[in-house]
Write a protein that binds this DNA or RNA. Structure first.
Length: 283
DNA sequence: ACCGGAGCCTGTTAGC
DNA sequence: TGCTAACAGGCTCCGG
């Protein structure tokens, strides 16, 4: 499932190939992919637009367009973007296609941006102002301006289990199930820990752990655990560095005891009961 | 404010 | 062996 590091990797790979490219058309075999505006309007408005730059905000991919609008892509569970030659065989789950004008230096090579999405949860949005879509997101955890004090402020006044707290995109953007579990392990915090019981030192640990696992994920170009692969189809490397995610029954790298799996807020949650203890006075 | 559950999807896996 | 049911999870919406 693409989270911040997977989306960041996708953007970094696509940026050189997509910057400056003109979109000549949009075609979809799965209309629900187009969230807004309605499909016919999307088709008309996207045509002829040039991609001026690419950005990431949380788990959203932002393609800024010459017409002052922004095409936003969310990969959700199984989304995958790649620029491929038009005559390349179509993959079964490539439901939405953005055709591209050839690069000036290779006018004979026809390419297109393909949105592959096995689970069909992905979405496209074309908006004048990205704030319409990403405005509800919390701060970027890797932003240089995001400090431990900021996380302290986000924790303050909230009474919530840590795991759902981390997955809430309106608090901090980009964290998903893998990196939440990984960060909690490095912070030595139990996923059911209530936010209002955290000490300043514990929040500082969480802050450091969050940034550490997200940076590790980016360095390793994402975790190819389920369907995620890089745009070129190659695998990331973060799956070889996870310490708790989907490691239930396997020994903790720190203490050797078995990693356990529970459900928290409907999500599979993996942790080491010894290294991430829940204080006696917590429910 | 927060929690749990349903719903959206399909491929894989667990269980009978 | 073959079928069905459960599971995986990012996000939104709903009711409590």
């Amino acid at each position: 499932m693409p989270e911040l590091p997977e989306v960041e990797t996708t953007v970094r790979v696509l940026r050189p190939t997509l910057t400056g490219r003109e979109i000549t058309g949009l075609h979809t075999e799965w209309p629900p992919h187009v969230a807004t505006p309605p499909l016919p309007e999307m088709v008309v408005r996207i045509k002829g637009q040039t991609i001026t730059s690419l950005d990431r905000r949380g788990k959203y991919i932002l393609l800024h367009l010459s017409g002052e609008g922004t095409l936003i892509v969310h990969l959700r569970m199984s989304g995958h973007l790649a620029v491929v030659a038009t005559d390349h065989p179509r993959h079964k789950h490539e439901h939405t296609i953005l055709t591209l004008a050839p690069r000036p230096e290779t006018p004979h090579i026809q390419e297109e941006l393909r949105f592959r999405d096995q689970r069909k949860f992905g979405r496209l949005y074309l908006v004048q102002d990205p704030v319409e879509i990403v405005g509800k997101l919390g701060p970027e955890p890797l932003d240089e301006n995001f400090s431990a004090a900021d996380l302290q402020r986000l924790v303050a006044g909230r009474k919530r289990q840590l795991k759902p707290f981390l997955l809430d995109q309106s608090i901090v953007a980009g964290i998903g199930n893998i990196y939440a579990d990984e960060a909690l392990f490095y912070a030595g915090l139990h996923p059911l820990r209530q936010t209002d019981t955290l000490t300043e030192e514990e929040v500082n640990r969480l802050y450091t752990a969050l940034r550490q696992v997200l940076l590790m994920g980016i360095e390793r170009e994402g975790a190819s655990i389920d369907l995620y692969v890089k745009p070129d189809g190659s695998r990331g490397d973060m799956q070889n560095a996870v310490v708790v995610f989907r490691r239930q029954g396997l020994p903790c790298f720190q203490c050797g005891r078995s990693i356990v799996k529970i459900r928290v807020g409907g999500r599979g949650t993996h942790y080491c009961a010894h290294c991430q203890p829940l204080p006696e006075d917590q429910p």
